[in-house]
Amino acid sequence: MRPATGEQYELDFGDLSATIVQVGAGIRSLRFAESDLTEPYPVGEQPPSACGIVLVPWPNRVADGRWELGGEARQLDLTEPAKRNAIHGLLRRRPYELVDRSDSMVTQAATVYPEPGYPFLLDTTVTHELHTEGLQVTHTISNAGESAAPVAVGAHPYLRIADVPAEQLTVTVAARTRFETDDRSNVTGEAPVAGTPYDLSAGRRVSELELDTGFADLPDGPVEHVLAADDGRRVVLWADEAFRYVQVFTHRSFATKPGGVALAIEPMTAPANALNSGRGLRWLEPGETWSVSWGVRPEGFGGEAYLASWG
């Protein structure tokens, strides 16, 4: 059977393994020994609910797919038709080209070509690498056009800890504000989380949460978001200082988990509707290149044996 997501790149490093796919440069699986660290999906299927994909040149939503550039209205394709939004950028269903490959690393490239809604030319690469700290993902964007281009980067991993139901896990996100949204998931305002059910800074049981929520006002410098089991195992999603926003999604209709919850923790360099608000956008000048990184680190999956496997 031919994979629905193109080439499948199998990576290995000690007890870590991953499957990275060609379409959307997504993560189809990430494991430590026999424990899944992200939600896997079958080789014959498309990524359910954007599972593991790269979000470029913007993450999340653009309301009505409309924004203005130099006073001129721009219209993006409505890729979330039920809510009349443009969602998750322009590369989520496009095949990438192989650039470099080793047992533990793969680099893929894709070009964003100009179109009426986004008239810019970008060369992009994504490197997935397994090493002693887990999985590291590095995104590079170069402006190959003749005018400054607004860009942002996101990713859409669904985290898990082996076979522990997500409802029994605790999620910690050190954010001080959240974005309020309307019934189309578009931003209408921003509010502090302190003293509200949206405060995840001290950890909240996933069973208590009903979220498809963007968060902001993260601590300065690199950030860490944590999913933890009661037995001490943790999956840490870390991101460098460019990722000042994060979306947390408790998905109760994830295609491969009927009746259960899949939890997405989505690092983003800009929030929803950034093409309109300008918040978090990076304007790349012609010829300029920008690189950002995030990753997934397992902790407590075997103690000394875990560390020794990389010795």
Rank of each mutant, 00 (worst) to 15 (best):
300 G>R: 14
55 L>K: 05
132 T>I: 13
301 F>G: 10
105 M>N: 11
209 L>W: 02
30 L>H: 13
145 G>R: 01
194 A>E: 14
233 R>C: 01
241 E>F: 00
83 K>S: 12
139 H>I: 02
87 I>L: 09
275 L>Y: 09
84 R>W: 04
187 V>E: 01
44 G>H: 12
43 V>Y: 09
99 V>L: 14
150 P>D: 13
120 F>R: 01
21 V>W: 10
256 T>E: 14
283 W>K: 01
2 R>Y: 02
88 H>S: 13
306 Y>T: 15
96 Y>Q: 13
56 V>R: 07
204 R>T: 02
47 P>C: 11
185 S>L: 15
222 P>C: 12
209 L>N: 02
202 A>V: 07
185 S>M: 14
281 L>T: 03
251 H>P: 02
100 D>I: 01
81 P>D: 00
45 E>G: 12
50 A>T: 14
69 L>F: 05
68 E>V: 13
166 A>Y: 00
250 T>L: 01
2 R>T: 14
137 V>P: 02
193 V>T: 04
175 A>Y: 01
25 A>P: 11
118 Y>Q: 05
239 A>F: 02
251 H>S: 10
187 V>R: 09
150 P>M: 13
38 T>L: 14
99 V>D: 11
155 A>R: 04
102 S>F: 14
34 E>Y: 03
290 W>H: 13
240 D>S: 01
294 W>S: 06
122 L>T: 06
230 D>P: 03
274 A>C: 08
83 K>E: 04
142 S>N: 02
147 S>F: 10
165 P>T: 00
153 V>W: 04
284 L>S: 07
53 I>H: 00
186 N>R: 09
87 I>G: 02
266 E>L: 11
140 T>M: 12
207 S>C: 10
304 E>W: 12
54 V>C: 10
278 G>K: 06
253 S>F: 15
233 R>T: 03
68 E>Y: 12
155 A>I: 07
185 S>F: 13
95 P>M: 04
297 R>K: 06
283 W>E: 05
79 T>M: 04
99 V>G: 08
28 R>V: 01
296 V>P: 11
26 G>H: 05
240 D>R: 00
298 P>G: 12
249 F>E: 02
189 G>W: 00
96 Y>K: 01
97 E>G: 07
116 P>V: 08
137 V>M: 04
310 W>E: 10
158 Y>R: 07
54 V>P: 02
217 D>M: 06
42 P>I: 08
285 E>Q: 14
145 G>N: 03
21 V>Q: 15
212 D>K: 06
38 T>R: 09
92 R>A: 10
74 R>C: 15
47 P>Q: 07
269 T>W: 10
217 D>G: 05
